[in-house]
Design a protein around this nucleic acid. Sequence first.
DNA 1: AAGTCGGTTGCACAAACGTGCAAAGGAATG
DNA 2: CATTCCTTTGCACGTTTGTGCAACCGACTT
Lengths: 330, 330
Amino acid sequence: MEDPGTLTSRTRDALTAAQLYYLQDLTMEAIASELHTSRSSVSRLLSHARETGLVDIRVHSPFDIPRQLEDDIARLFGIVAHVVPVPDQTGDADRLERVAVSAARILGTFFDSNMSMGIAWGSTMSAISRHLVPKATQNSTIVQLNGAANPRTTGILYASEILERYGSAYGAHVQQFPVPAFFDDPETKAALWRERSIARLVAMQRELDIAVFGLGSPFAGVPSHVYIGGYLDAADFASLSESGVVGDVATVFYREDGSEDGVALNARSSGPGISVLRGIARRVCVVAGISKIPSLKGALAAGVVTDLIVDSATARRLVDETLAERAPAS
Amino acid sequence: MEDPGTLTSRTRDALTAAQLYYLQDLTMEAIASELHTSRSSVSRLLSHARETGLVDIRVHSPFDIPRQLEDDIARLFGIVAHVVPVPDQTGDADRLERVAVSAARILGTFFDSNMSMGIAWGSTMSAISRHLVPKATQNSTIVQLNGAANPRTTGILYASEILERYGSAYGAHVQQFPVPAFFDDPETKAALWRERSIARLVAMQRELDIAVFGLGSPFAGVPSHVYIGGYLDAADFASLSESGVVGDVATVFYREDGSEDGVALNARSSGPGISVLRGIARRVCVVAGISKIPSLKGALAAGVVTDLIVDSATARRLVDETLAERAPAS
DNA sequence: AAGTCGGTTGCACAAACGTGCAAAGGAATG
DNA sequence: CATTCCTTTGCACGTTTGTGCAACCGACTT
């Protein structure tokens, strides 16, 4: 795909160009003449430098201006929040896109050599995967958190495409999880979990340094991938509704208060249990759009989130609603 | 100087603007409408954000492309080098300017809360001071390394201006060193060094975490500040020339082999001795222009440098000459 | 109230930049 | 050697961005 010789010389140029442009504020014209090429090539070199993570731009607020919403969330839920500013009237698609761009950057700062990261799939994870900033790591692994096959399609292409993008962005090994999202019979799951190949993977999931996931919200305006991809049938939906489920993390369902006891579907789900998730040091949850608020509240109540990346409108709504609930009359 | 109220709101806007611009690649036009202001204001907000260090851009080469010259220098001298790319035909003034810009950035990554940094003065230190990227630190101090008064002027304005810029960039306390650069009588120096106020400062110099300095080169094409500012008379110059001096660090002179024994002027200099310098963990030397090569070689031989920031032409020349000297015939 | 001064705003223009496109390599294949 | 296919290059154009300038704003003085 990439000729290493060309790559090196190209990258070397990109590196100098980036130094001259970002560190010394030269114009591209000036850089072009130093590099004996055209200005447009320099423009392209710089894009290349940005895309491949040669240039690392970060914006950090000085201590004296803590970000209001992030602070509120930290206080209310005891987690670290990254609020992505998005204008309120933005459509859900754009909103997700912009949160995904930021999430992708932030993930780059979380992940490093000798680490393993578990990832779910779904529209959020997919959106992020398209914006990951490459970063060279050694001895690192990306592990799929839950199966993706379903009665209609294998779903494997979809899930493995996401997985693959994470893997190649970080130069990490990838571990697919070749099982259905939901089993028809819980016994099959139990049996499969005893298979050494699968058991190995499940064991890896318990050793992860980071988990990254979006949230599913079954009954909200914008249904998530799981709920429209043919993974669940009418009976399943009825059962979810009956149990009072408000959302899912990696195809594990929970109620608004964070509980999951008695949710029948979870016994058949390939996702890691909520208790397994809670054993992972850093659990990054990415959420865009207020339609996911109920699901988000449930996830927070369940304690599966340590780091939340969310758009400003949703963050504000979350804080407002929570404050209102906790102090019913003022 | 700055109204805190305005500052906060302005900085808050700058912060969002920077997020939207650098982290989400929106155009300034788009940001302007989100912030309900004009596009040009956004442009200015972003400048503000960059100047005040809200945005932090760094360029780092991937492992597989080590930078040739930096590696060579590391191998030859056992120090960390930062080579600033500058086209070869650049004039000395521009060269210094560009090295200074990079040096200023790099210093920002070295210095932090609870640290103390010693700084010399001179054209290099002055150039750097004009490009420092602000960074909030607590409980940190900037200490002047050597006196600046001379028979003609107090020199204090010049030196304290530099000192002040470092201090305010990092929000650090500044410690002036109110003594002449050179004493007429070594006895006066000794006496003054016994004064508690001065002794306190000299003691602080021994506790520094970082020292930053340029190099003086007395007999090269472009003489440094010390040599034209009226600090030295004809007899002094003669004495330096006789002793075989090739340069100075913070008004402490040395020979090409790094030795300083018997250099009469050093007994009268207010600068910290070479042995004091060597007691500081990180000694950052900033050099621009090949005319400083002899002086640079001496400083390296003297072992006063742990981190070198230098332009590419000078770095190349340094490496070439050193290789030639060490392997006289091949 | 008129005046003055430092600082901010938007406009307008020029400079700098991104990108579609056609042409030019350049490697593999027939 | 011709052909094909893919990548890279520079040009040209439209877009995006920086900045001098005049107008404006608020605060404080006379």
